[in-house]
Amino acid sequence: MTNTIEELVVTAEKLGCRISTLVKEQEAKSKGCTEEELFLKMKSYLEVMKQAANKGVQSEIRSISGITGGEGKKLWGARSKALSGEIIAKAAARAMAVSNVNASMGRIVAAPTAGSCGIVPGAVLTVGEILLKTDDEVVDSLFTAAAVGRIIALNATLAGAEGGCQAECGAASAMAAAAIVELAGGSPRQTSHAVAIALKAVMGLVCDPVAGLVEVPCVKRNAMGAAEAILAADLALAGIESVIPADEVISAMKEVGRMMSDKLKETAMGGVAATPTGKKLSEKIRNF
């Protein structure tokens, strides 16, 4: 098992293989199962991701509290006119669609958490579609994403309560960026640059859910996270390097999370949760 991004990249370079190939091999060995078994499980997760994304772009899904809903469908409907381009609009729409399904008590895959569950499917499904990749290739790229997420979990955290939103949506964005670089045929080294670029963009992002619910600002942050993942991958694929290595960025993220006030870590006491509108909504929801 690899404990740093550097180790992951160097090992894949040495073997001349993709990161996902390495991850599947290591994982099968450590679990004592076949790579095929791992692959099929991940493939079933991809199916759940697709179902959630489709459901949320096709119909207006409202949350239990009623404060969010239908965002995925709305942007999907406007995708052809999107100034940011159809790829970004589709990815962001799917990300919000999955988030909508989550907030409505629908079935999703935590990636890495439920609050950030739209980013990886939104970005990865869309890039896979644009690049005409097979499902199997997309499944492979999810192993790369998961490996990156695991290294962030080991060396920092994936919990908003510990590290703020940078640990949830930030990590999801880095994971998605890594998967996209691999799907687009980038090198393992470029993958690490994409991870670093994605994480740096949201360094210090606070976790400030209104009424403590995974809705405001979470649904729209999933959209932004998916868009950011694609752009981070584009930068890396263009040969732009992160001056700060990915592992150092991850350590910095951990430290920033530690320095962050508890009010900004999922307690609904700071950020947009503490605004007059946030508080009013929270009061209303508590009494519903």
Binding site: Y45, V48, A103, R107, V109, A110, V120, A146, L158
Partner: peptide, 8 residues
């Protein structure tokens, strides 16, 4: 990390 499949 990617998983579990769950109801939100």
């Amino acid at each position: 990390i990617i998983g579990p499949v769950m109801i939100g």
